Amino acid sequence: MVTISLCMIVRDEEYALERCLLSIHDLVDEINIIDTGSVDRTKEIARKFTENIYDFEWIDDFAAARNFAFQHATKDYILWLDADDTIEEEDRMRFKLLKQILSAAIDRVTMPYNLGFDNAGNVTSSLRRNRLVRRACGFQWIGPVHEYLNAWGPALDSDVCVTHKKEKTYTDRNLKIYQKRQEAGEVFSIRDLYYYANELRDHRLDAQAVVYYDKMLNSGQGWIEDNIQACLKMSECYGRLANKEMQFSSLTRALLYERPRPDVSCAIGAYFFEEKHYETAIFWYRQATEVPQPATMGMVNNATSTWYPHLQLCLCYDRTGQFEAAHAHNEIALTFNPAHPSLLYNRKYFAEVHKLGQTS
């Protein structure tokens, strides 16, 4: 059986670290904790699980910290997690099986990273990450912020999920790192252009964000997943800037990269719904229900191909007086998300106002 080193970088994670380590400590053979400047009980908590605790002076470079962590690994494979990640019980069982069957012929194992959940706990958004890598390959992290593990070679796409349980409030830390690099005259990579634009967008600096999304797209060198997301996010920015023409143009720009995906179809449908062009919105929301989600390492929003477009079809048909169709789509949406308050409200509305379906 292969052996695994867990390598983590942490700072002020006293409220999350123990939960993370409790979920994984007995599944790995070594735990290395790299502390980048904690002033709380993080190290005290880490010592419950390992003596391998190392200090790393923070230099505004996440890749440097993660590479330092990887340098301390001594086992066959390296697993990386953040303090606000966990391995849920069913995934712990899958992890045990993975460890038993993993062969040294595999250089990297990808795992779904579950990021968003509905009220019932169902996964709404996820992406795949290179999560477990063979130490002998010497893979390196790249990028001071929004870093990525530059891994290649024979891969196993595992069904072991890592669950993200973000509890800390978002800060402007990443934005400031980018701004500091920009002020120093650094030329951003294509990936940096995209993630800097994301930081600007997240802080509602929309006029600046669209400039960097456009630079990234015009380079012609972006990853297709980033290109499509850049178009959607740029459209969102233009919407807040009240520039309808560019809002729509950004949406249709996404169609240059691939056939309409569910998230793109829903975004175009939302544009026409807002414009009260309900029949056109219906076309695009139907499209979202008919096209499968792509098999990709990029972000997938499951809601855009399940309950959400049916909810929007319900609203469109209601607006156009097609109440039976509206009720039918609300019921379909409920099969995907049976506890959603808007869907339950709609069910009551159709029963009481239009005498459709049964009250509960």
Rank of each mutant, 00 (worst) to 15 (best):
Q287A: 12
L256D: 10
R261K: 14
C7D: 03
D55L: 07
F336P: 03
E352T: 08
V211P: 01
D40H: 02
A270E: 11
T42M: 05
I9K: 00
V300C: 07
A64C: 11
D40C: 06
S158H: 10
L251N: 00
F95A: 02
R11I: 11
F323P: 00
V211C: 07
I34F: 09
F350W: 03
K96D: 13
G116F: 10
V39H: 08
D84C: 10
E167V: 12
R201S: 10
I59K: 13
F272P: 02
F273T: 12
M111K: 04
G220K: 06
T74P: 02
T36G: 09
P154V: 10
V123H: 01
R201W: 09
A73V: 07
E258I: 11
V145I: 13
D202N: 15
D107P: 04
W152L: 05
E88L: 09
K96Q: 14
L200Q: 04
G143D: 08
N67L: 09
S23C: 11
P154D: 07
T124E: 11
Y15K: 04
G222V: 08
N122A: 13
H72S: 02
Y196E: 09
I190E: 11
V133S: 06
R135A: 07
T110W: 09
H277T: 09
D226S: 08
E51M: 04
D12N: 15
A136K: 15
H164F: 13
R253V: 00
C7H: 01
W284M: 07
M234P: 01
S219P: 01
A254T: 02
R66S: 07
E290C: 12
I224T: 12
L102T: 07
K355I: 05
F70Q: 05
T86Q: 06
R204K: 14
E225Y: 10
Y278A: 08
D263W: 01
L255M: 11
T252R: 11
D192M: 12
R47W: 09
H146G: 03
D40P: 01
T306Y: 01
N174Q: 12
F188Y: 11
P262G: 05
P309F: 01
E199N: 07
A288E: 05
Q312F: 07
K48M: 15
F139D: 02
I87P: 00
E30S: 08
R204S: 15
A328G: 05
E14N: 03
L6G: 06
A351E: 10
A73N: 05
T280R: 14
A242D: 15
K276H: 11
R181H: 12
F273P: 00
M246A: 08
T110Q: 09
R47T: 12
I106F: 14
R47Q: 15
M297V: 09
V211M: 08
L6W: 09
G121C: 11
D85Q: 06
H146W: 12
F56K: 02
K75D: 10
I332E: 07
A16K: 00
A73C: 14
